[in-house]
Write a protein that binds this DNA or RNA. Sequence first.
RNA 1: GGCCCCGUCGUCUAGCCUGGUCUAGGACACGUGCCUUUCACGCACGCAACACGGGUUCGAAUCCCGUCGGGGUCACCA
Length: 489
Amino acid sequence: MNVRTRFAPSPTGYLHIGGVRTALFNWLLARRHGGQFILRIDDTDQQRHVEEAVALILDGFRWMGMDWDEGPEVGGLHGPYYQAQRGDIYRAAADALIASGHVYRDYSSEAERNAERAAAEAGKKAYRFRRKHITDEQLAQFQAEARPYALRFAVPADRTITIHDLIKGNVEQKSSEIGDFVIVRPDGTPLYNFASVVDDAAMKITHVVRAEEHLANTFPQILMFEALNYQLPEFAHVPYVAAPGSKKKLSKRDGAVGLDEFINKGYLPEAMMNYLARLGWSLDASSEIFSRDQLVASFSLERVNSSPASHDPDKLFWLEGEWMKTLSMERKVNGVLPFLRKEGLVAEPLDEAARTRIEAVIAALGDRLKVFSDILALGRYFFTDAVAHDPDAVKKRLRKDGVVNMLREVDDVLAAVEPYDVATLEPAVHAFAEARGLPMGQVVNPLRVAVTGQGVGPGLYDCLAILGRDKCRQRIAATLEMLSASASA
RNA sequence: GGCCCCGUCGUCUAGCCUGGUCUAGGACACGUGCCUUUCACGCACGCAACACGGGUUCGAAUCCCGUCGGGGUCACCA
């Protein structure tokens, strides 16, 4: 069987990582079986069909490496891929439903329905809309006055509808629990439960993989598939993503949940894909790291958990570190560059010397660089003259007896060392410490703070060499000045 | 409230369908130690869970019932 899956977001303005995970499962399933992944924009209601929101979704997908076979920008045989542009298709389906007697005209007013709903609520009962009987005279009059009406689906009375869900298993519901639902508004626009079924059938979707919140929608949808004589697709409802450390649904208030936030921090698509795939899915008892290809080769809906998983930023961060280790120097430089540029820390255009310097910093940073934006948090002092001394580090490493003298003397060592590189610096500083009878820590740590402003960072000799003799000596001088100024104050 | 879904370490999960191999395994996080000029990396060790109560059975995390907890849905939203 040719597998066709789809992701059908409504363009609301941002891409929730829970939604991205659902999309990923769809994409993975299609790729796993050599099928097609379709992107459809569900903008039936939206007057707010913001083109910008669509662009955000498409960019997010591209960043993740989830390519779509049909949809916006690429087109396809079953387009258009915006529901707002598929009016004729819905109209034809609605006509068929009218002809077969599955739907009827509902002339009820909003006030009427609100009253019924309120009554149901007051009686602690579920509200179910049922067909109102209208006489021929009334009907004639409504038509004569062109009174607006909605099209409603006449839900059959005594049926049990069963969903054979690939994740949840068999789920049953009595049709008496389902009210007659509107499929077309008075203004002719279709509603989700209708449009979605028509489109899934028209686009030959074989597997509807979507958020769990749609599970209840599936019952009326199955009725719709049957009424339209469409073949039923397979269904799989993915549990929601919960907030960190909780079982509550993840929302904007739980910190970073938009994909763009992770992109902007400099996360890797490999890490994000790996993380999202493992959120609710596992291959076996111990596999954690999956490349995109490994995921495609091993993904299956049977191994998607039926219970909710909560978002775990720590795990994402760990995975990010693991994937960062595998990156080539070239990709690291390219990843880090936008952050340096944004802060004006590199000359434009970038020359060979600057690139070499960035490479040296990245090499010195090593595994400390987890996310691309770390280049700023961890290595800013390599790219600017302005050095900010971390107060804690100053207190811990510089405000000690003998530090001022030691710094003056080690400055002489730096002045004399030739050539000024790691291989020469290291033995020179060692010899200095030994000559003064100082433990290495009492030389290295103050020197690091003097030269970088920070208490933590790459190996000292790497820092010294990258910064260069002049800058190191300038900073030592500045540090000495700062120390004497605040000491006399 | 009716209906539906879900419930294993703090978190992601394995095990559950096809009861015994589970004194419940792996990973993240956390703690301790080693390495070490700091941090990070790496290595070693440790902490930590079958929601609760009944039942079935020689035996239950695994099967059944109930309770509690969480979630969804009951729109002319998607």
